[in-house]
Amino acid sequence: MAGGARAQRESGEAGGIALRDVWLDRGDAPLFRGLDLTLGERRIGLVGANGSGKSSLLRLINGLIVPARGEITVAGLDARAHRRDLPGRVGFVFQNVDHQILFPTVREEVAFGLAEQGLPRAEARAGAERLLAAHGCAGWGERAVEELSEGQKQLVCILAAIAPGPPILAMDEPLASLDLATRLSLLARLRALPQQILMASHDLDLLADFDRIVWLEAGAVAGDGPPREVLPRYRAHEMARAATAAGVLP
């Protein structure tokens, strides 16, 4: 798979993510107050209520936002000093495909990241075609993204994100608006990728076989460990929260 070789090479030389004493405000309120996290596992699930900081954590790792204080190291790079290089190391997939597909055709979308890395247009296009073919999407290059199904669009987003060969893939509820069969089939594809995956999700079943779950609560780590330990506790906590809200939305 194109990009995979580089991903493996890079994650081998300096993989992983480390946050040290990270402070971040959201609006006027503090969100992270001295967050410490070392994320080295292959597949890590992020759970937590809306507003708990999952998206902010993913954004910090891609360099979309920078912390007010603290240090973040991503694939061996300091996130503040190498902000410009982070998109090449961390592919980002959002929930809503219409918020992230930037081009009218599939090939342009997948080739964009390669061209941004300085590859000549022709090579970027060829690279996109190779990646599409390697994922069973040969012949998709010419297709208009408007004609694709929602699942196909999200697959294009994932391929566009891994095209530059980042060692890490950050995903903010990438499967939330898809039907169950499409979710499972995309999840199987994600499992086969060489990238380290960091995925926020409200669908706990999808995270059951991940290597580690980090549960965020109001910007702090409320649970951290293998899914069989963290997920039942998180589920119970959320059920209790729904019950105590007594008719009012939590």
Partner: peptide, 12 residues
Amino acid sequence: DALDARGFGRPA
């Protein structure tokens, strides 16, 4: 945000 996440014109 999506453009920024993919490094378009991101200042150092």
